[in-house]
């Protein structure tokens, strides 16, 4: 088991010029590691959409590596997306799933459907991903990520990740969503588009 921060740190160190799509827990950890990192977009608030957003980027820019930092519950919301990716076969697409077995990790820690042993790599393999991996520790993932990124794609990576204790409770009964949570995805997509030199509307 690795922590979420360890997982995102390893990805950040390996990304080079890759485009990264984050969502949910990975979005928060990536924000902490490197706020406003170029070529990074948070798929929010749109749980489930990260892989398809990343697939569009990968298909438009086959010259770029695209990495998606998905969540287990997020993936389950659009599980058929595994088939869409496999059908389109973007060979620059790397789908990394943070599997911590809960929704609202660190906030409410509600069990994810299938938390007790769903075989994510088996699902991806059956859908038609060209390579599937699972890493259970930060050491394994750090040692293996270079091989993953140089291997066949679309590739699927499941990471066994721990989660922090829930913080929502009587002493902290509510959290408010900021305005930026509703505008950042568009701003970040426009920034990526500009950095890629994709000028025409």
């Amino acid at each position: 088991m690795m922590t979420l921060m360890q997982a995102c740190q390893i990805v950040d160190e390996a990304r080079e010029e890759a485009i990264i799509v984050t969502t949910m827990g990975a979005m928060g950890a990536t924000d902490q590691l490197a706020p406003q990192r170029p070529l990074t977009v948070a798929c929010v608030p749109l749980m489930g959409g990260a892989a398809s957003l990343g697939m569009g980027l990968a298909l438009a820019r086959p010259d770029r590596t695209v990495m998606v930092l998905d969540g287990d519950a997020s993936l389950l919301m659009e599980l058929g997306g595994l088939v869409s990716v496999a059908q389109a076969q973007p060979d620059n697409f790397f789908h990394i799933v943070i599997n911590n077995g809960v929704q609202f990790a660190g906030l409410g820690n509600l069990q994810t459907p299938g938390h007790s042993g769903i075989d994510f790599t088996g699902l991806a393999r059956a859908a038609g991903y060209r390579a599937c991996y699972r890493f259970d520790s930060a050491e394994q993932f750090a040692a293996g990520i270079t091989e993953v990124l140089s291997g066949p794609a679309p590739a699927f990576v499941e990471l066994a990740v721990s989660h922090n204790d829930a913080t929502l409770g009587p002493a902290n009964p509510a959290v408010e969503m900021t305005d930026a949570r509703f505008t950042r995805m568009g701003d970040e997509l426009r920034d990526i588009r500009a950095r890629l030199g994709a000028g025409r509307a």
């Binding site: 980027l57 438009a60 820019r61």
Partner: peptide, 21 residues
């Protein structure tokens, strides 16, 4: 590009747009 849900069709289209398509 055939998708399995309309959510995906919209999301893939948006990613394609960001990439210049």
């Amino acid at each position: 590009i055939n998708c399995t849900t309309e959510d995906q069709a919209i999301e893939v289209a948006s990613g394609l747009w960001a990439g210049g398509a």
